[in-house]
Amino acid sequence: MIVAESKPLTEVANLIDNAKKVLIVGCSGCVTVCMSGGQKEVGILASKLRLLRKKEGNPLETVEVTLTRQCDPEYVETLKKYVTDDIDVIISMACGVGVQFLAERYNKWVVPGLNTKFAGGTTEHGVWEERCGLCGECILYKTGGICPIIRCSKSLLNGPCGGSQEGKCEINSEIPCAWQLIYDRMQALGRLDLLMEIQPPKDWSKSRDGGLRKVVREDVKLDE
């Protein structure tokens, strides 16, 4: 999932400036699972902003809506009836994708309520960890299912480096060395021979390079 976390209250309060009525839009996708932008978090942010404004003597009206997903136009469209003329600002509590989809569809000032962090998973209740670097060309089959692109601080393809000490990375003693993990796993699987192969430089043109990336599937398109 895409993992995100709330922006500090003061930052969001500054983003909406002197708005009188705000529409706070949650997303039932990834950010609900990582407990940052679902229906509940929308309620909490709305309450925080109202309390802050009430204290300042400048009351704020909030409208709370949580969409099935903010990254699909069909769901973004269902927000239409809530985007009335008196809405001054829309706060999107989705990842950066949701914020942009709302901004593209509605002619309103749209601000993010979250900081989008990474693509990751839940390691324990309340803890989320990055797992995928979205590099565009998966090489996990070469490394026993452990991604050196995102889990190695240097994204090395032929690791480990000299900074791997007692299984930890030199940048932080709490971060496991990805290449140590890869070596251990390959050893357990009896596939150490795969690590003898020298990996050529990765084709980074498939990663974040050359503007936005696009996936097109002709077989599922609906146009004639």
Binding site: K40, G43, I44, S47, L51, K54
Partner: peptide
């Protein structure tokens, strides 16, 4: 206990 309810009490 829900944070929303606690905040609502103050509100």
């Amino acid at each position: 206990t829900d944070i929303r309810v606690l905040l609502e009490a103050f509100e």
